[in-house]
């Protein structure tokens, strides 16, 4: 079984501040990390390798510095790492990004693709399912548990919804997005930290993959950012003054909308 884990290097958003003068994000000095859901996906792949045997390959699209995230994955125990990087990829939205990553996965070949559910810098959760569509393989998102049944040669996945859990079976190639609650990712181990230095992080560029240049980068992205604002109109709802009856109704509505009751 060959597993490709898609990872993204993201700024640690809990440390991001807004510049009050320019109204832009202050990214300077904000540390970069492996996106938490993706880190769990790496661990899941390594667990499958330990239990059932697999080759674990990590793939990241990003600038040169994303190599650090891939080196960390190697130090966790991944076998191979590839950085998908090219100026032609810049400005890609989720659809264009998924087109590029899917082309790289086709080139590398994979039985199972694992992604994190979503990245903390964008929170879209779109790239995983879009890659699955480009690859023409089934997807399972929001995975809360993944196991491999050797007898039926199928992956058994617990798929989390707000109000229920499905146990799903998938045979053959597939893409699964995992929740960070699935497991606590392991630390890098000393042996692998030393060894990763010897490993190459492969570079994949535009020239190495089969994509139509019209489908990638800024011009290949159907969505465009029209404007940005730092006004926070929904983060915290303003404090309401209500009578007890209306207050109770507002609470019940809010809990129902979130499928909590």
């Amino acid at each position: 079984m060959k597993i490709i884990v898609c990872v993204k290097q993201v700024p640690n958003t809990t440390e991001i501040k807004i510049d009050p003068v320019t109204n832009t994000l202050k990214r300077d000095g904000v540390p970069s990390i492996i996106n938490p859901d993706d880190k769990t996906a790496i661990d899941v792949a390594l667990q499958l390798k330990e239990k059932h045997g697999a080759q674990v390959c990590v793939l990241s699209m990003g600038p040169a510095q994303a190599e650090n995230a891939l080196r960390e994955a190697l130090a966790m125990g991944a076998d191979e790492a590839y950085l998908l990087t090219d100026r032609a990829f810049a400005g890609s939205d989720t659809l264009a990004t998924s087109t590029i990553i899917a082309a790289a996965i086709k080139k590398l070949g994979a039985d199972v693709v694992l992604c994190g559910r979503q990245a903390i810098d964008g929170d879209t959760a779109q790239v995983g399912p879009q890659i699955a569509e480009h690859l023409g393989v089934p997807q399972i998102t929001y995975a809360a548990a993944i196991d491999y049944d050797e007898e039926s040669q199928a992956l058994i996945v617990k798929r989390q919804f707000e109000d229920r859990v499905q146990t799903l079976q998938v045979k053959g190639k597939c893409l699964i997005t995992v929740l960070s609650t699935l497991c606590k990712p392991r630390y890098m181990n000393v042996w692998d930290i030393v060894n990763q230095d010897e490993k190459e992080v492969g570079k994949i560029t535009f020239a190495d993959i089969e994509v139509n240049p019209a489908d990638i980068g800024l011009k290949g992205s159907p969505t465009k950012v029209k404007s940005t604002a730092t006004k926070q109109f929904d983060k915290t709802i303003e404090t309401l003054e209500l009578d007890a009856e209306s207050a109770a109704k507002a609470i019940v509505d809010a809990l129902k909308q979130r499928h909590l009751i």
Binding site: I16, I18, L25, I120, V225, A229, T230, K231
Partner: peptide, 12 residues
Amino acid sequence: PAFGGNLFATII
């Protein structure tokens, strides 16, 4: 919202 609600983007 983007970046954990620190920023809002209007997309077309």
